[in-house]
Nucleic acid binder design. Structure first.
Lengths: 150, 150
DNA sequence: ACTTTATTGAAAATGATTACCATTATGGGA
DNA sequence: TCCCATAATGGTAATCATTTTCAATAAAGT
């Protein structure tokens, strides 16, 4: 019994083999995977699953809030489990504009999460926006690339 | 004499009609335009300019740092002038996940810019990353959409 | 087990962005 | 001011991620 069975049942969605495997893959490597990355890993476990299903399932999971989709500007979306059974995982990203390396960091400065709560509240009021989540991305050069600049 | 002539000359780039018009369009509507939006506006001013040139020029401007490219997750990139003649404009975005409306906000809480300077410094050190810029996006429902929820 | 209907997978369609390449036009030098 | 090397352009075709279509398959309540 996986922790997310209930989430599915609650929404009236069926628990299928492809969905289980896709979630398994996402859970095993919490690593900003692209749809194709996921497809390849899934394919290793159960080769009958098609790319279409991967896309469809990811969409579903994003809508359910189980998965976050990120766009880092390289033309393909990345996906990450939004939370485990316990609590939501919030994290921000560092992206190397040269080699495309992506680093997750979750170790916010104390004030950081604090400020976001505050900012979200202010923005909600000022623009009458119901904020669901946010993304923060820092772009630059990683250690390997920053030597051999441009 | 536009303020950006020098930037071009400095890089050895030529100042051409398409480039002037594209910059003009970007300057007149600082509004997270897609490449096609820009193409259409440019086309109104000077119809011989092709879509390819728009893409190429935007790439150039992004590399020069005159323009920021944003990915809001709807499959098309958006472009905005990064700064005017005076100083860099830094701004964050609110995106409605239903209707796609995008709001720029520049009126940070005082602490906000402060914190980002600090965070960038810490991250640079910790991950040995040379940070160039960052994006912050809040996703949610705008005033029009938040009533008729999902 | 049976049936309803959500789900799936393969192939084709779409839509944004990029690569090609022959043509044109900028800008430094004569 | 005119010339020329070559950067820049624009149309078309190609690419690549993601969606749509639709007939075949498989959950899950009975």
């Amino acid at each position: 019994q996986k922790w997310w069975y209930g989430e599915f049942r609650g929404c009236g969605y069926r628990i299928t083999v492809p969905r289980q495997i896709i979630l398994q893959v996402l859970d095993e490597s919490k690593e900003h995977l692209s749809a194709e990355d996921i497809y390849l890993k899934v394919h290793n476990i159960y080769s009958a699953i098609g790319l279409t299903t991967v896309y469809r399932t990811l969409d579903l999971l994003v809508n359910m809030g189980l998965v976050f989709r990120f766009d880092f500007g390289d033309g393909r979306a990345r996906y990450e489990l939004s939370h485990g059974p316990k609590e939501p995982i919030n994290h921000h990203h560092l992206i190397c504009t040269k080699c495309g390396r992506i680093i997750n960091y979750t170790d916010f400065i104390e004030e950081e999460s604090e400020l976001f709560r505050k900012t979200e509240k202010e923005l909600s009021k000022k623009y009458n926006f119901k904020i669901k989540n946010h993304t923060v991305q820092f772009y630059g050069l990683c250690s390997k690339c920053s030597g051999k600049e441009k």
